[in-house]
Amino acid sequence: MKREIKFKLNGEEVTAEVESHWTLLYFLREVLKLKGTKEGCGYGECGACTVVIDKMAVNSCLFPVMEVNGKDVLTIEGISGPGEALHPLQKAFIEEGAVQCGFCTPGMIMSAYALFEEKKNPDDEDIKEAIEGNLCRCTGYVKIIDAINAAKRGK
């Protein structure tokens, strides 16, 4: 069933016609062609599809697109400034070696982004809590924690 929704996506108002059975992830990737958000499992078990909705990290693969109506959605494409102005988290992930294959990275950064929305000065426990739903098979997580800490200091 086609339905109209209105929401804010990466700072811009969007009005779109959607199929009511779509997930947010499907809408982002297949309709809007925003390929930065990844599908790692489709069942909310890996966190690769994490986006930030109303300042909270959410698995977009399980999120009905109809529920974003009236909400504020942020994806990996929406957190850096114009041109080369990367978000401090993006810079820190690069510089601290937190990126290997990189497939978990957008979701990981969005989870960390939501953490900073919630806490100005998170400790290691907070960081672990924020990314415990983001699986990474390459890094062993150590440098990801380093990067989030570095971003915290650099903010």
Binding site: E39, Q90, I94, E95, V99, F103, T105, P106
Partner: peptide, 23 residues
Amino acid sequence: KKIPKKDAPFKVTGQALYIDDVE
């Protein structure tokens, strides 16, 4: 030297294209 990975900027911005992103 601790040189950051060359393709990391593409990966942290979501610009890197993986197989599922190819159309």
